[in-house]
Amino acid sequence: MRGYRGIFHEFTHTGSWRALALQLRTGIVHVARQLAGRRDDGDPLARFFDNYGPDGVRPASPVDRMLRLDAQACLVCGLCSVACAAAGGEPRLDPRDAVVAASRLHIEWRRLGLEGTAGSACAGCAACDAACPQGIPIHEVQEALAAGPGKG
């Protein structure tokens, strides 16, 4: 019955007969379904990703989470972009802009199917990493941007 704790509070805070009627109707169906055993609508996580896949929502991979926490230290000082230019790098996305975009815009890129169009020209020389005063693994951010779902 722990699952139904607070029921008294809920009923006393119901504000109208219409709300009460809806609660009772939905509640009875819910209890009946619970008594009849679990529902048969499949894996809820799979349903979640079916529902939200078109919005770009994916499970957060460990790499994604690590980069998010690392990249948030960015000062937007631009030293990575100087080091990249000095090393002759020509990524489609400047390393500074990649760090800024990490976790901010990934979901949008996925939603619009643009993943893989940003960081693919980064040669991975890691000159940017050595130039970062905050120790952000910038070239990994570039790689994560270039990678498809599941990796980034």
Binding site: V76, L79, S81, V82, R96
Partner: peptide, 9 residues
């Protein structure tokens, strides 16, 4: 000044 400065580099 950052991010447009090269003098420090």
């Amino acid at each position: 000044f950052p991010p447009h400065a090269l003098a420090g580099y």
